[in-house]
Design a protein around this nucleic acid. Structure first.
Lengths: 213, 213
DNA sequence: CGTTGTGTTGATATTAATCAACAAGTGTGG
DNA sequence: CCACACTTGTTGATTAATATCAACACAACG
């Protein structure tokens, strides 16, 4: 999965796990709430989480999905600027930010790694701005699908609902549905239930995505 | 100005300026090109710069404006993932990334500051995703205008062209014009040439922006 | 089994884009 | 200093992409 995070080098995992609190979250559970005091940060152990920003009237924007090994909540501010929810049944580890900072003080490799993660997030965020500001519905879906990590059989996992995809791509549920249906009709993809999609013609889909400009 | 950067603590400025190469850029000059080897990073000394991402067919997205004191090009990757241009006549300082990294090795305060900057960038980027994905044209302009730093007389500087604003907000030039004209007709703002705008009714504009959800 | 949430498809509405004309600056060279 | 070209900004008419409204299929679940 893209954006939101990154993985740590093995040698640091032990020190990190010493302060980790493992949590099991059912699908849909919110574990970070926009505006709350930001006392913790999280890593994803299994499943998928997503970051959400909301408007007063209920409109929402998913700013990223976080798969296994990804980080959430690395903000400097005193309050979270986004909410986070489990997409499917998900295990996360929670870390105290105070303890993390202590740990970081003499772990330069880990510090560097976190810095790199933040930079990569920023690059991903800028790519997403281009998508949201300038790409068509079709291009957005093509970008989304080709950005998902393919499994051994060539299929990609889409555990999030159509609503989550729509809120991630700045579209409506209906437009997501119609666009995917059309891509299937055209032989670009094959949907196998709503949580699994085979990318039939990856080159064509990548061309549609329009990156590599 | 919002997003893209931040300022360093005074005590580090001397060390940084020792490796700085000052450059003077005319309005419109591009000084970072998407895809080029990322050997440098930059700070803005005067004027305004902007970050741009482009699609093959010419569509472009401005991902942020950088005013005085802001940073550009803090990526980890080997190539820049965006271009940068001077909005008006601008002075920037250029720093070698290699030298910067050496300097950072024993400057914890500076390192921390850069980490904080990156985090703030990320928060701003997520806010912009919400704007691009879910706000109306009117809400986007209201958000943009209320986010500009007001001068002593209450006016805000808008040195960028309508095209740049449109590419920043994911709109067309015409929609930006029409929306601003309408806001002026409604007494929310008063335009004084295209580079200067007085915000007449800031509370109303902030309410329109829809943040503080 | 009904109930509820999710996904799909169709008909229609609406926002913002496109196409077009022109006004207002800005700069250049005669 | 003025005429001209060229860029930028504004406004109007029309189109098009996507949202909205609506109906229904289907699966999960109590």
């Amino acid at each position: 999965m893209h954006t939101v995070c990154g993985a740590l080098p093995i040698e640091d995992l032990g020190r990190l796990s010493a302060i980790a609190v493992p949590l099991t979250l059912p699908a849909g559970r919110r574990f970070i709430t926009e505006g709350d005091a930001a006392a913790h940060f999280f890593t994803v152990s299994s499943g998928t989480a997503m970051l959400v920003k909301g408007l007063a009237d209920g409109r929402r924007q998913v700013t990223g999905f976080a798969g296994v090994g990804h980080f959430l909540g690395l903000a400097v501010a005193n309050t979270y600027s986004f909410s986070a929810e489990a997409v499917d049944d998900t295990r996360v580890c929670r870390y105290s930010r105070v303890q993390l900072n202590t740990l970081l003080a003499d772990a330069p490799a880990m510090r560097q790694r976190i810095m790199d993660i933040a930079s990569n997030e920023l690059v991903a965020a800028q790519a997403q701005m281009l998508l949201l500001g300038r790409k068509t519905a079709r291009e957005r879906l093509a970008t989304f699908l080709t950005g998902l990590a393919p499994r051994a059989d060539g299929a990609v996992a889409t555990p999030m609902t159509r609503r989550d995809i729509a809120d991630y791509l700045g579209l409506t549920i209906e437009t997501v549905c119609r666009t995917l249906t059309r891509m299937q009709r055209e032989g670009l993809i094959r949907m196998q239930g709503s949580a699994r999609t085979v990318i039939v013609d990856r080159p064509a889909l990548r061309a549609l995505a329009g990156d590599e400009a």
